[in-house]
Nucleic acid binder design. Structure first.
Length: 578
RNA sequence: GCCCACGUAGCUCAGUGGAUAGAGCAUUCCCCUCCUAAGGGAAGGGUCGCAGGUUCGAUUCCUGCCGUGGGCGCCA
């Protein structure tokens, strides 16, 4: 049986032992990094340079003392002093070889960590207003959030995925109004369609459905609809609000039907879209329920109780400047209606009340100015704002033949997530979205995402997986038999390189989880695929020598596992054939 | 004006308090009688925006400046 020992932890314990032996009383933090150059060993340690100052001895001399005190190890080949005082550590091949069968025996457990120790963590993402189809900007938030949630779960957190539904605000009223106006057109009641209402064709589609279902039940005279409204030239937003008020008055209880119909249609559409994209949620949390259940009243009352509210100009203000915000914010308007901010305070307090030890919000980067006031409000209400983490996602800009496609929901001219998925496929879309750090602008090259060539990193990685599947298929044996492979036969440089790469996987998961950086996993998979392709070209797997063959098959099967596992975390498929 | 990011090869971007800063594309050259050439190998290409500071050591941390993008509603 080939027992595997994690090299890094092993070396750290060796070094700690050596330091305490050679330099009693000195307890520096042992750090190991992976040198860029192979001539600098497999790991390098800077402890001698750290301790040299307090010891008042030359770093190289300290390094020599540490090396002399290193205990014997069956993994460590040699340790050298190098440069200003590095200790370069070279491992025996055996340190890596056993990884091949180890990963096979671990199965899906390889790469699963216990960093989170079961901590309950909520990831809230997408949370787009259900006022129209999701666009490519939402797509990035969806891909990032889903991948991050998967990575966190892999790292041992108990993850809860949530979508906050803005079903109570003015934007929803505008959508309901837009739908109704289109419906009135079908009833031959023509109100000039406001330029700042929702223009998209999906609004007409909803109007058609309502007309088909209910005839002219919701018909009202155009003159009544516009009665008393300011003209669009002088006050476009005021006109919109007046039309909404008229709609509510004229329709009475039926307004709720139009509103609810539009909400259900758009929310359902978004849910289907996301599900097809491999993005699923545990909870769809309704903003409306915050109003209805009195949670907002309670949240505001809490702020008042702590003495952080005041009234001015008929509105109720939160003194957020006392918590680092640049100006105070309104929580209840002079018309008595709570602001979105008030609902958000209640929502975040509710998140903590539900027992999440950490809450991650994924917002568009244009909301960054919103962070101080939300954190401030949480602190003001007596909650621990440090448990809220906000990850910002920059917009994605699509490029086709160097041409930009900008987007604006109201004008109805934008590229939808569905369009994007249809054009490049779910795999390419998911992968390209997380190929950049989330808080950086993303230039999404549609032509590249579609190309079936080695330029396309998605295909490159999937091809590595398919190649392995093809070899295993040609072999036709039983995978479990490879557990006893003689891994000591893996001596080629490409084999060792691949083994080392496989050994990095748990560390990559850890970094991706800790830094909220699933892109590191995407880059790792590219590197892993490159190592596999390099080995593929250099070595024949199905060779006469059965012991060698089985060792190599164990190695590539282990690679296949990691590729598949890593791709799954990113929501990308791992095909056996391409 | 204030706040937040970013500035690394011709292009798109990784990366790190350490030793000679990487990948893909693009350019030039080479490798299939063999498990998928959607692959591999080699070469060229850099004052890590500029200037100070902290440090044994800075592309990485801090400050200023320049440049780019975004944010600064009783919208959501």
């Amino acid at each position: 049986m080939n027992r595997y020992t994690e090299p890094r932890a092993h070396l750290i314990s060796l070094l700690q032992h050596a330091v305490s032996l050679a330099l009693p009383g000195n307890t520096g933090v042992i750090e190991l990094d992976r040198p860029k150059q192979s001539s600098h060993g497999d790991f390098a340690c800077n402890i001698a340079m750290q301790l040299a100052k307090t010891l008042k001895r030359p770093p190289r001399e300290v390094a020599q003392a540490v090396i002399a005190a290193l205990p014997a190890s069956n993994l460590l080949d040699k340790a050298e002093i190098a440069g200003p005082g590095f200790i370069n550590l070279f491992l025996k091949p055996a340190a890596w070889q056993s990884l091949a069968t180890h990963i096979l025996s671990q199965g899906d457990a390889w790469g699963r960590l216990d960093l989170g120790r079961g901590e309950r963590i909520q990831v809230e993402f997408v949370s787009a207003n259900p006022t129209g189809p999701l666009h490519v900007g939402h797509g990035r938030g969806a891909a990032f959030g889903a991948s991050l949630a998967n990575v966190l779960a892999q790292a041992g957190y108990q993850v809860h995925r949530e979508y906050y539904v803005n079903d109570a605000g003015r934007q929803m009223d505008i959508l309901a109004l837009s739908t109704w106006l289109r419906y009135l057109e079908l009833c031959n009641e023509f109100v000039p369609f406001p330029g700042n209402a929702y223009q998209g064709g999906y609004v007409r589609t909803m109007a058609d459905s309502i007309a088909a279902l209910h005839g002219d039940r919701y018909k009202r005279a155009a003159a009544e609809v516009v009665a008393g409204a300011p003209d669009a030239e002088s006050d476009a937003e005021g006109r919109l609000d007046a039309l909404i008020a008229n709609a509510k008055r004229l329709l009475g209880a039926d307004y709720a039907y139009i509103h609810g119909f539009a909400l259900e249609e758009q929310l359902g559409d978004g849910r289907n879209d996301l599900t097809e994209f491999g993005v699923v949620f545990d909870t769809w949390f309704s903003e409306k329920t915050l109003h209805e259940s009195g949670l907002i009243d309670r949240a505001v009352e809490s702020l008042r109780h702590h003495g952080h509210l005041y009234e001015q100009d008929g509105a109720l203000w939160f003194r957020s400047t006392a918590f680092g915000d640049e100006k105070d914010r309104v929580v209840r308007r002079d018309n008595g209606i709570y602001t979105y901010f008030a609902a958000d305070i209640a929502y975040h307090l509710n998140k903590f009340e539900r027992g999440f030890e950490r809450v991650i919000d994924i917002w568009g980067a244009d909301h960054h100015g919103y962070i101080p006031r939300v954190k401030g409000a949480l602190s003001a209400a007596g909650a621990d704002a440090d448990r809220l983490h906000v990850a910002l996602v920059q917009f994605a800009v699509l490029y086709r033949n160097g041409q930009k496609a900008s987007m604006s929901t109201r004008s109805g001219e934008y590229v939808t997530l569905r369009d994007l998925r249809a054009e490049v496929g779910n795999d390419a879309a998911r992968f390209f979205y997380v190929l950049r750090k989330s808080d950086q602008h993303l230039d999404f090259d549609l032509d590249l995402a579609k190309s079936q060539s080695n330029d396309n990193p998605v295909y490159y990685i999937q091809y590595a997986h398919a190649r392995i599947a093809s070899v295993m298929n040609a072999w036709g044996g039983v995978e479990a038999d490879l557990l006893d492979a003689e891994v000591a036969r893996l001596e080629q440089p490409q084999e060792i390189a691949l083994l080392k790469r496989l050994g990095e996987y748990p560390g990559v998961i850890a970094i991706a989880a800790q830094d909220y950086a699933p892109h590191t996993l995407a880059y790792y998979l590219k590197d892993l695929a490159a190592d596999l392709h390099g080995l593929y070209v250099a070595c024949q797997f199905l060779v006469e020598d059965e012991a060698l063959r089985d060792a190599r098959l164990a190695l590539i099967t282990a690679t296949r596992r990691v590729l598949k596992n890593g791709l799954a975390l990113l929501g990308v498929s791992a095909p056996d054939k391409m």
